[in-house]
Amino acid sequence: MPTHAQPAIAVTGLRKSYGDKLVLDGIDLTVPAGTIFSLLGPNGAGKTTAVEILATLKKPDSGEAQVNGFDLARQSDEIRMSIGVTGQFAAVDGYLTGEENLLLMADLNHLSKQEGRRKAAELLERFDLVEAGKKVSTTYSGGMRRRLDLAMTLVGDPRVIFLDEPTTGLDPRSRHTMWQIIRQLVANGTTIFLTTQYLEEADELADRIAVLDHGRIVAEGTAEQLKRRIPGGHVSLRFADPRALRAGELALRAAGEVSADEDALTLQVPNDGSFRALRALIDRLDGAAVEVEELSVHTPDLDDVFFALTGHPHDSQKDALR
């Protein structure tokens, strides 16, 4: 039996190609139990393939992996018993109601009738689908379908859940609901392997992030560690008039490169957005008695991360394999 000390997922040297297209080029990962791990990358980076392999849907060409202590090559049945998968495209039965979908999962998990009903009712309640539960799921909105999909995954009480781009295509409100649900899951001790193309999402949720590009992990660490490696964070200052702009430029030039926009009356100053760095900036402006109308902090986004880590913009291969 697996114990708590061992990682929920351990991967070494995983490779996979389709024909002569290399999709995963030897990836190594360790995900401690009870944490959220995010695989961050653009379309075509190999995220879905990684999930498909770890979820026993596809076989790797080489490399080893353990999920919940079970060997991927020899114990796929045991792995299937301990995982849940919610894909990018909600895999619900559109002809059944939400409740019937959950009962189907209960039957397939070999729960008793009574236990299945109890579980279905509990999940409908928890995912705010009580009313919708009686309706056929083709009538659901994108967010509702995604919630039902995740609820179906939870019927089997998985210890590791793979979430493949769980919020892609959702509106901001549904996305935030999804984030809340994911946080609750991990609070109950479940391990989550999340793939996403949004840095913000990985930043919000993940304990650790690995950046995947062209089938390789190009960086790994906490959100903080990754962002620190990325230039591109800056502070934008807006002034009331050209005179104040010039004064500000003069006061800050000593501290580093400053770029001024005379028409918009703004200055851009490199800054990592940390409290300390901001205070230093403000002290400097105060010291020179410069009046600033507005200050805004710009943290790097996925494009900056990608450009910094890979040297190419991330949308260069949108049409590649998912």
Binding site: L57, R80, I83, G87, F89, V92
Partner: peptide, 17 residues
């Protein structure tokens, strides 16, 4: 074919059934 394109077959395949 609908089961396949909607992804539910893949869901079934990740389950211990």
């Amino acid at each position: 074919s609908v089961d396949k394109t909607e992804g539910i077959i893949n869901r079934f395949r990740t389950m211990p059934i």
